[in-house]
């Protein structure tokens, strides 16, 4: 059951990600992103991270995607123009990505014995444990994130303001 769900949603996630890149209209890409995010939520659920799965759906598939679609509509973004792409992407990018994928796949397959194994559904991470990590062990990075958001807002205002 777990394996079947994993395979289905794993495949859906990868397919959604590929479709996101291949689509030429931004709205289609945004919709593919929803598929990716939601499939990821199911994968989190399979790993026993209930809270994370719910947060993923609410925050990413919900709030952030609504924002994306709003921006696309406000900017009235149309179809992308098809370009030939950069030469670097073909010469270095695709072979590089392929080599990396092959390398990682090779290591995961040949060295699979070195990893600790858990079965899907074996652990359930409680919200209490999660908040222990987030608000105690990683309190400082959590707080420092607010500075990151602050400069992002500041920069958006500074760069988008009308010139006078």
């Amino acid at each position: 059951m777990h394996l079947a769900l994993f395979l289905i949603f794993g495949a859906l996630c990868v397919a959604g990600a590929l479709n996101l890149l291949l689509q030429r209209h931004p709205i289609n890409s945004a919709l593919s992103l929803i598929v990716v995010m939601s499939s990821l939520a199911v994968l989190y659920l399979l790993l026993g991270a209930e809270f994370l799965a719910a947060a993923q759906v609410i925050v990413y598939s919900g709030a952030i995607m609504v924002l994306f679609t709003f921006v696309i509509m406000l900017l009235n973004a149309g179809r992308e123009e098809r370009t030939r792409g950069s030469k670097m992407a073909y010469v270095i990018g695709f072979p590089g990505a392929a080599v990396l994928l092959a390398l990682l796949a090779d290591i995961f397959i040949t060295h699979s014995g070195e990893f600790h194994r858990v079965h899907a559904g074996e652990y359930v991470v409680s919200t209490a444990a999660l908040s222990g990590v987030l608000f105690r062990d990683l309190l400082l990075p959590f707080e420092v994130t607010s500075i990151l958001i602050l400069i992002a807002i500041l920069g958006a205002v500074a760069l988008a303001r009308k010139e006078h």
Binding site: L138, L140, P141, V144, T145, I147, L148, I151, A152, L154, G155, A158, L159, E163
Partner: peptide, 26 residues
């Protein structure tokens, strides 16, 4: 000494420089 903090700090430093690099909008 925690890679997650290193990452967030790196992002703060990088994003602020991305923005400042574009300050001469004219």
């Amino acid at each position: 000494v925690e890679l997650l903090l290193v990452f967030i700090a790196l992002e703060i430093s990088s994003i602020s420089t991305y923005i400042m690099a574009g300050f001469r909008r004219k």
